[in-house]
Amino acid sequence: MKINTPEFFSALAVEMNAHPERYQPLGEADMDVVIVMRDARRSPFAVRLAFEGIRCEHVVEAEADSPCEYRLDGPLAAWQAMFDDIVANGRATGLHTINSLALLGDDIALGGSDPMGLDKFSRFNQTLQEFFDGASTLLALEVAP
């Protein structure tokens, strides 16, 4: 499954929604996020994720500059490296956590026009990290015979 597709993020949403036991201890999270993956060979891929409570309720392909509370924007290769690390280790490790990547900002940048929206990245960070970590199950399943 290609990571720069709505199907991939829909699968992550299905994975999250199927495992409330992982998200319930973290508590509810309400946030409206746009993920942007850039590739010099084509126009950027962007997807809008709407989290409500302990579910990811909406996954919609979007424009890179769609309004949102915050956006995470970076090259496809950086996103691929993050998901590769998640698949290899079962969860993001070292500097491949989304907070580390966005903090350094060298590859994946955290952006948004409202500081209160940007702070939601911090307020619900562990939920977002678990959401991305869900890729370990997805991609591991895909390569299974």
């Binding site: 956590t97 907070n99 500081p115 209160m116 702070d119 911090s122 307020r123 960070n125 562990q126 990290q129």
Partner: peptide, 20 residues
């Protein structure tokens, strides 16, 4: 990492209250 991330979530709520 886990300690800082969990504390960060709490701290961001306090900042959100203070700002608003």
């Amino acid at each position: 990492k886990r300690i800082f991330r969990m504390c960060m979530q709490d701290e961001a709520r306090h900042v959100a209250y203070g700002t608003m």
